[in-house]
Design a protein around this nucleic acid. Structure first.
Length: 324
DNA sequence: AATTCTCCCAACCGCGAAAGA
DNA sequence: TTCTTTCGCGGTTGGGAGAAT
């Protein structure tokens, strides 16, 4: 009994996504929330398989994704976490919520591996984080201990407090501005020749789309404003200008619904799927979330006196080469 | 200017895990 | 418990863009 294909291969489109497809997908997810990917192609009419839709959303369209060059700090984080966790890119990405696992994986494969190799060839590291990972066992033990403790803490917290803030477990995902629009601005010009689907591109795309197809834009502008309203959680209200709304589509600026049916506060208070999808969209798995946040605390706030990079540097001394 | 090479990254594929019937 | 379906992850690939020749 072979595994069935994830979708009917006949008539399934492959390759780069078009702006129109992105709009359809974003609109649908805005309305229904991410998940149930199987139904997305049938309900939207997209000639894409469910996996492709999910991937497009998680790797590109979902709010909060930061694109562009990795910072030094991010690089160190990745190196450190890779040494710690191995090629578990999703786990690593949970520590860098603005980055997708695909992005991190690509960055590792294209940049960091080379650096690593170079360093290795230069003979600067016989005890490097690659391959041997002499302290990995130590780190793993510590990690496992923390996971255990974190799970215990989670159980206690859940039993004591039934209204935990989702943002606590993922502080960067809910109110985080959609940083792609800023970080991608330089990259966008470089990629202007093709549809790169940066946040800017999509915002512009949506603007044009509204102008060109007022009828469909009516429905979708409403839904997009819902999208915005749902997405926004804490920033102060701005004028409910639709075009501004699109501009801020991925910057999470507040934008009231055009029909006024639901306020931002209401949507947040109710934690509708649309709302929670943006608060928790990067890592919906709660079991991952809480331990990770505690681990983050362990990773970053240990001693509460060192800044993150200090700790990373410190840790890298143990587990990694003098990479930088 | 044309061709080839290399790099990079978005997207695809296949597998395993989880969820549901 | 078993089987089926769906989802998520990690490895890999295809092709566009820029660099090199």
């Amino acid at each position: 009994m072979g595994r069935p294909p994830c979708c009917d291969k006949i008539g399934v489109k492959k390759g780069p996504w078009t702006p129109e497809e992105d709009i359809i997908l974003v609109s649908y997810i805005q309305e229904h929330g991410p998940g149930n990917w199987r139904s997305v192609p049938t309900n939207t009419g997209l000639l894409r398989c469910s996996k492709s839709c999910r991937l497009r959303w998680t790797n590109y369209l979902r709010p909060g994704i930061k694109r562009g060059n990795f910072t030094d700090h991010e690089e160190k984080m990745i190196i450190h976490l890779q040494a710690l966790l191995g090629n578990r890119w999703a786990a690593i990405a949970s520590y860098l919520p603005q980055r997708t696992d695909n992005d991190i994986k690509n960055y590792w494969n294209t940049h960091l591996k080379k650096k690593l190799r170079k360093v290795h060839e230069d003979g600067q590291s016989d005890d490097g984080f690659t391959g041997s990972q002499p302290n990995k066992g130590q780190w793993e033990r510590r990690l496992q201990t923390d996971i255990h403790l974190a799970k215990q803490a989670l159980c206690e917290a859940l039993s004591l407090d039934k209204s935990p803030s989702l943002t606590d477990s993922n502080p960067s995902s809910s109110t985080r501005p959609f940083q792609g629009s800023t970080s991608s601005s330089s990259a966008a010009s470089a990629a202007a020749a093709t549809y790169a689907s940066s946040a800017d591109n999509i915002a512009k795309l949506l603007q044009n789309w509204m102008k060109n197809s007022p009828k469909s834009a009516q429905t979708n502008s409403d839904s997009t404003n819902n999208f915005l309203g749902a997405a926004n959680s804490s920033s102060s209200a701005t004028t409910p200008d639709h075009h501004q709304g699109f501009d801020s589509l991925f910057s999470f600026n507040s934008c009231a619904n055009s029909d006024g049916s639901q306020s931002v506060d209401e949507s947040n208070a109710n934690l509708t799927p649309e709302t929670s999808m943006f608060q928790d969209e990067s890592k919906p798995n709660m079991e991952n979330q809480v331990p990770l946040s505690l681990l983050e605390k362990w990773l970053f706030d240990e001693g509460a006196t060192q800044c993150h990079e200090d700790l990373i540097n410190l840790s890298l001394e143990d587990t990694s080469v003098g990479f930088f």
